[in-house]
Every structure is written in C-alpha cells, then in structure tokens.
Simulated assay, not measured.
Amino acid sequence: MKKILAHTMMFLTIAGQSFSQNNENTTKMNTAPNHYTFQLSDKVTRQKVHFKNRYGITLVGDLYLPQNQHQLLSALAVSGPFGAVKEQSSGLYAQTMAERGFVTLAFDPSYTGESGGEPRNVASPDINTEDFSAAVDFLGLQKNIDRNKIGIIGICGFAGFALNATAIDKRIKAVATTSMYDMTRLMSRGYNDVVTAEQRTQNLEHLAQQRWKDAENQSFAPSSNNLPEKLTGNEPQFVKDYFDYYKTPRGFHVRSINSNASWTATNPMSFMNMPILTYMKEISPRPMFVIAGENAHSRYFSEDAYKAAAEPKELMIIPDAVHVDLYDRMDKIPFNKLVMFFNSNLK
C-alpha cells in the first residue's frame, strides 16, 4: 500500500506540475519557439489563427487544411495532452487527419502556450471544456466547413474535457479520445483512487495554506517539484515514459508546461470538487470512440468512461502500447480507424 501511495503522489506531481529539467538533454533539444516536434506534411497547409472563448480569452491555434479542397468539409478540433502545446501531439493528430481530408484545428488551451489568460500555467475544468466549444465556434464560421459536420479529439487530460464538452455542446457530432485522463478524478482521488479522505483533507489544507502565501506575495507560486534533475532508473515506468516524451528531443517544446515550466502550486483546487464525467450518458445519441494502450497506466480511465456512456460507443485497446505511445507513435495510433469513425459519423 505504501508503494502504491508513493506512486500516486508522484503521479499527482506529474499531472499537476512538471518534469525537472534534464541538463544533459537540454543542449540537444530545439528550443526555438517556432519549433514543431513533427515535420510539416506537403499534403496540407498550416496557418496560425486566433479566436476567443466565452470568457474573452484569446486562444491561438494552428488550422490545417487539406490540399485541393473543392467542397464543404468536415472539421475536427484537437487538444491535449494536459500541459502540452499545439506543436506537440495535438498538432500531429491535426495534421494527420487533415492529410485524410478533414479541416483540423489544434489549439493551445487557455493560460498556456501562445493562448491568452493570466496568470499563466493554470487550468480549469470549466474553462478548458469551454475552450473546445470556442474551437467549434471558430470552425463553424469558416466558409469551407460544414458546421453540421464538426467533431473533436481529446488527448490525455484533454480527453476528459472533450467528453465533457460533447455532453454539453450538442453541436459536436462525434468525439474521440486517446490515452484519456479524468483530471478531476485524478486530482481529487489520486492514481487508482487510492487517496483516502484523510489524505484528501491534508491536500486541501496544504493548498489553502499556499493560497495565503500567494495572497501575501501577490503572485502565484509555481508547483514544487520532487523529481530528480535526471532519471535514476528507479522511477515508475510511467514516469520514465513521460520523461522520454517531454524531456527529450522526441517531444520537447519550450512552451510546453510539461517540458519546460510548472503549473501553479494551487492549480489542483478547481479540480478537487468537479466530477466532469457526471453526464456521460448525455453524449448519446452522438457516437464516442475511446482509445487506450493495453499497457497504459491510465487505461482504467478510458474503460470507466466507456462503461459510463450510452450507445453508440466503441472502445479500442491498442496492443503493446503505453500511455505516451498514443502521443506520437504513428505505428500505434489507429489513424485509419479514426478516419473511418469520423467519416461515418460526420454526415
């Protein structure tokens, strides 16, 4: 039990904070702000766009357009993982789906990346859900898009927000998720729900004391980080997997919180009492497609979301895949299946 709890606390640190900087890797990584972790395809064009959400926050995204478009097209909004930016996984998804004929929008959530919002590096179950609806607003106003054929893809922590947005926003006609987390469940209960009521109270007491410090200093302290400057080899496998993506040239981006910054210390507060998947059944009759890795530590989030939803729904488990494999491993991400899902349901 102690071992499980220790891993839970480390998991919460990763989900709510950031990875330590690996000095050995830093010199090898591209730190240019305009860097993408994938090459631009010659089958699409990419343009930077700006739009506002319902709270007046300006969001910044990359709009991917397929070549030789001659009719109204279906569209997809994509975001995630939690703490990532559009130049990472969400951009790769958007580009790949644009190659297959969709207009796609990968966007930075509020308070992160190039998007607006102050203070920086905070998250909100409400506002991040709204970010998806704002992306739908933008897509539905484009002259080359059929606003009745808009879907969304959520990755990692933004998969939970994508499901919540779909339940609320009936304009979203289909939703797919990969490597899903329910961030509200994670932060309130811990990994595998092992946080006790007493431990939850202690966490809330700690957050309350941090609020006093922030108020006194008139600034928002970054999260403390108990991860080492570099891996020792004794970390849980999922920590090594995250490190391999965010802290190496494979997935590093200078604007990514998980790569190069930290969430604010009080960031978990807005998540602790907000079960965002309460109304999963209200996604129906619109279809839901949930994808998870066979060996992902987060697999249970996807399976539980699938069980909670009404038909039509589909769960796909990717053999021999871990959580971060579905960030960028082209041989693991079932893009052909995603294309079939959205082509069948955006009509």
Score class of each variant (00 low, 15 high):
residue 4 I to W: 15
residue 11 F to I: 04
residue 11 F to H: 14
residue 19 F to I: 03
residue 22 N to K: 05
residue 24 E to T: 03
residue 35 H to A: 07
residue 37 T to P: 03
residue 47 Q to M: 01
residue 65 L to I: 08
residue 66 P to A: 10
residue 73 L to A: 11
residue 75 A to D: 09
residue 76 L to M: 08
residue 77 A to S: 11
residue 79 S to C: 12
residue 79 S to N: 14
residue 89 S to M: 09
residue 93 Y to F: 10
residue 95 Q to I: 01
residue 99 E to K: 07
residue 100 R to M: 03
residue 101 G to Y: 14
residue 101 G to D: 09
residue 108 D to S: 03
residue 116 G to N: 07
residue 121 N to H: 14
residue 123 A to T: 10
residue 125 P to V: 09
residue 132 F to Q: 12
residue 134 A to K: 13
residue 134 A to Q: 13
residue 135 A to C: 09
residue 137 D to T: 10
residue 138 F to A: 02
residue 139 L to H: 07
residue 140 G to V: 07
residue 140 G to S: 13
residue 142 Q to I: 00
residue 145 I to H: 09
residue 146 D to Q: 05
residue 146 D to L: 06
residue 154 G to Y: 15
residue 156 C to H: 12
residue 160 G to L: 12
residue 161 F to P: 03
residue 164 N to H: 15
residue 175 V to G: 06
residue 186 L to P: 00
residue 189 R to A: 13
residue 191 Y to N: 12
residue 192 N to T: 13
residue 195 V to N: 09
residue 199 Q to K: 09
residue 201 T to I: 10
residue 207 L to T: 06
residue 210 Q to S: 01
residue 212 W to P: 00
residue 212 W to D: 08
residue 215 A to V: 00
residue 217 N to A: 11
residue 218 Q to C: 00
residue 219 S to M: 02
residue 222 P to N: 09
residue 226 N to E: 10
residue 227 L to M: 15
residue 230 K to L: 10
residue 235 E to H: 11
residue 236 P to Y: 07
residue 239 V to Y: 14
residue 241 D to A: 04
residue 245 Y to H: 03
residue 247 K to I: 02
residue 247 K to R: 12
residue 250 R to F: 08
residue 251 G to I: 02
residue 251 G to D: 13
residue 251 G to L: 02
residue 252 F to Q: 01
residue 254 V to N: 08
residue 255 R to Y: 06
residue 259 S to K: 01
residue 259 S to G: 05
residue 261 A to G: 06
residue 267 N to L: 04
residue 273 N to Y: 12
residue 274 M to K: 15
residue 277 L to P: 06
residue 279 Y to C: 03
residue 281 K to A: 13
residue 283 I to K: 12
residue 285 P to V: 06
residue 286 R to E: 05
residue 286 R to Y: 02
residue 287 P to S: 01
residue 291 I to A: 09
residue 292 A to I: 07
residue 295 N to D: 15
residue 299 R to T: 05
residue 304 D to E: 15
residue 307 K to L: 10
residue 309 A to W: 13
residue 316 M to V: 08
residue 317 I to G: 01
residue 322 V to F: 04
residue 327 Y to P: 10
residue 334 P to F: 02
residue 335 F to C: 01
residue 338 L to H: 01
residue 339 V to R: 06
residue 340 M to W: 05
residue 340 M to F: 05
residue 342 F to H: 03
residue 344 S to K: 08
